[in-house]
Nucleic acid binder design. Structure first.
Lengths: 206, 206
DNA sequence: TTTCTGTTTGAATGTTCATTCAAAGCCTTG
DNA sequence: CAAGGCTTTGAATGAACATTCAAACAGAAA
């Protein structure tokens, strides 16, 4: 799973760290390779020895996000609560806690890239989709684990996707207003919807 | 309301049309001024005579979107149905009809810019927020018009914001997967939530 | 016709961009 | 120690970038 410890591993990590941070803070197009080089403490030749192009570096950053989804995003959520329904809201709460200290100046690193490079970089789009799919799969798993607390006729795939929709759409508005209110509003409405679903699940026949 | 017909009015329109289209298709940073000039059939001096900078041009594009919100976005929706609740879903349906013919290659022009330039261009962010606020205000108005069909204790501001969340978050996923499914899923869950709210409104005491 | 204001022309500017490459260095293997 | 292959160095390259400006032009006013 982890690559062999060749001399370039450190360099590769430093580049990926710097690139991921800068792409998140400034966007892909607005981040110059020279800035990545400076922040990573590396020369152009080293970067281009490891990554054939800036686009390939972006691809590597997105592959890394996929790898980090469990340890960085999902494991802390699952450690917070064991109730599958509460895990959904713990996940949404975690994003709030990550971004509200910065007044929502940054958005979701994947979502930002999704809107910036989705149709200009055909080879990147699948990597973004893979991140979204992985994220949704966890939510979907939790909804499954909720079993018959949720209505039997509920489309759980749809609902899992909607949780991501709420997170991304809410974060976008929070960023535009530099305030948590819009994010909280959407999460609060989702909670209200879940309350309804749980009532309907509890009232099931048989 | 409309500017006086000075000779530069046509030029200004052509530039704004081209810039709006290109920013939507390619993003702000990925669109070169030279491309805008070519597509608008205009020379650099003309553009810089009317707009002091590329950033100022972006600001003008966003002001124009604000002006077009009613005639282009909301009036067609209000013409489609007079039922205020159905207008919410007609609005969401309209975005689907705009973007599905292009396989969701483009996203919401405002949303795209929101994530791309929100924190690098401080003077632009309020213009994005104004667009969002105007959009939400229509939804909010419709929710008001629904009167006691909706529960009295419903936070209608929150719900109106959530409708935008669903649109933006759904569109982002539709773009990443090049498919309407993710968008439809979120709209469908919102419909289910509205059905619940309408039931609860109808069942009100008194 | 002359003057004036606003508009357009388009070549030129200087900067920043992603990328290249020959040379030097390092580290492992024989 | 010698050989060979990654790895790093960092100056150099050419393209694309946003922007400028002096000069030409257009149309209205006097």
């Amino acid at each position: 799973m982890s690559p062999p410890p060749t001399p370039a591993t450190d360099t590769r990590s430093r580049i990926l760290d710097a690139a991921a941070r800068l792409f998140h803070e400034q966007g892909f197009n607005a981040t110059g390779v020279s800035t990545i080089l400076r922040e990573a403490g590396v020369n152009p030749g080293s970067l281009y020895n490891l990554f054939p192009s800036k686009d390939a570096l972006l691809a590597a950053v997105l592959e890394r996000y996929t790898e980090l989804l469990h340890p960085v995003v999902m494991a802390p959520v699952e450690a917070r609560t064991s109730d599958p329904v509460e895990r959904v809201f713990a996940l949404l709460q975690q994003y709030r806690e990550w971004f509200s200290p910065l007044d929502f100046r940054l958005g979701c690193p994947i979502g930002n890239l999704a809107l910036e490079v989705a149709d200009s970089h055909p080879e990147i789009r699948p990597l973004i989709k893979a991140n979204f799919d992985g994220w949704i799969a966890y939510v979907r798993k939790w909804l499954d684990e909720a079993g018959d607390r949720l209505p039997a006729d509920l489309d759980r795939d749809q609902l899992a996707g909607t949780v991501l929709t709420i997170m991304e759409g809410g974060l976008m508005q929070a960023r535009s207003s530099r305030s948590a209110a819009a994010y909280d509003a959407s999460v609060s409405q989702l909670r209200s919807y879940f309350d309804f679903l749980l009532t309907r699940g509890a009232a099931r026949p048989g």
